[in-house]
């Protein structure tokens, strides 16, 4: 390689360095690393929420949507809530939880809220140990459900400061993939039919809506146990129905 070639190479390198520097200057804003505290806190809270809510639904759904069922049928050591029941004979069942989605929302909230709170406190405590000064306000959590999702809205003002660094949060919106809403809606449909017509033709229903697998088991004391399974996630919801019972024996 000749001298001119070398010079050309140096020039190219110099241009690359200059361009690179200019690009750096121009994009600096974008390359500023997010303080790890923010990432930690966000992902930490998200994890807290996700775990608590999933834990709640994992407990509740097999029990008919309640953490501690009061009126239930025991099956395989599981307390399965009567969503529709008539303790007498012959007559259709009476819907025990007409606003089921609302009730389940509240149940999730009651279960998850202290856990989320506790979890956030732990996160804050961890930050404090890293010499962050933390200012936080009261936590407000609201839960709503929609198709395939549970949406948790955590309102909490947190200001973390350490030296010059100051980070603040006030709202976390976490979407959790969970079939609870879909399962509950099918349960409502079944219960409505049971309360009105004493039966639900689930085979036909599954033909039209195959996303949810429906199983029905009738115990010897004429309690109907419905088991709904979300095909894609495998999550299950159970509930019991008692109505239109013909007293056994002649």
């Amino acid at each position: 390689m000749g001298k001119r070639g070398q010079i050309a190479i140096y020039v190219i390198i110099a241009v690359i360095i200059v361009v690179g520097f200019l690009v750096f200057l121009f994009m600096r804003e974008r390359f500023v690393p997010v303080p790890s505290v923010e990432v930690d806190l966000k992902s930490g809270i998200e994890k807290c929420v996700r775990d608590s809510v999933n834990e709640a639904t994992d407990i509740m759904l097999p029990q008919g949507g309640f953490i501690e069922p009061k009126n239930y049928k025991l099956f395989n050591k599981t307390k399965i809530t009567y969503l529709c029941e008539n303790a007498g004979n012959y007559k259709p069942c009476i819907n025990q939880h007409p606003m089921l989605i609302n009730e389940i929302n509240n149940e999730i909230l009651i279960y998850a809220e202290p856990k989320i709170e506790n979890c956030i406190n732990n996160l804050i405590f961890a930050l404090k140990r890293k010499n962050y000064e933390i200012k936080s306000e009261k936590t407000n959590i609201s839960i709503s459900m929609t198709k395939g999702k549970i949406i948790v809205d955590v309102e909490k003002k947190i200001i973390a400061s350490k030296g010059e660094t100051k980070i603040s949060f006030d709202k976390f919106l976490i979407e959790i993939t969970n079939p609870a809403y879909d399962l509950i809606n099918v349960a409502i449909e079944i219960v409505n039919n049971e309360a009105k017509y004493c039966s639900f033709e689930y085979t036909g229903y599954m033909m039209m809506y195959p996303e949810i697998d429906i199983r029905l088991y009738v115990t010897s004391d004429s309690v109907k146990l419905y088991s709904l399974k979300d095909i894609s996630s495998g999550k299950k919801m159970n509930f019991a129905v008692r109505g239109c019972v013909i007293p056994v024996g002649f």
Binding site: I94, N95, Q96, H97, P98, M99, I101, N102, E103, N185, I188, V191, N192, A195, K196
Partner: peptide, 27 residues
């Protein structure tokens, strides 16, 4: 406990249910 139609205004569902239970839960 009269049986009627309970309208869940938050979800848009109609449910056959007793009156008090419906209203108690916001329907």
């Amino acid at each position: 406990c009269k049986i009627g139609t309970c309208f869940d205004n938050f979800e848009g569902n109609c449910i056959i249910s007793p009156k008090k239970r419906c209203e108690q839960k916001g329907g």
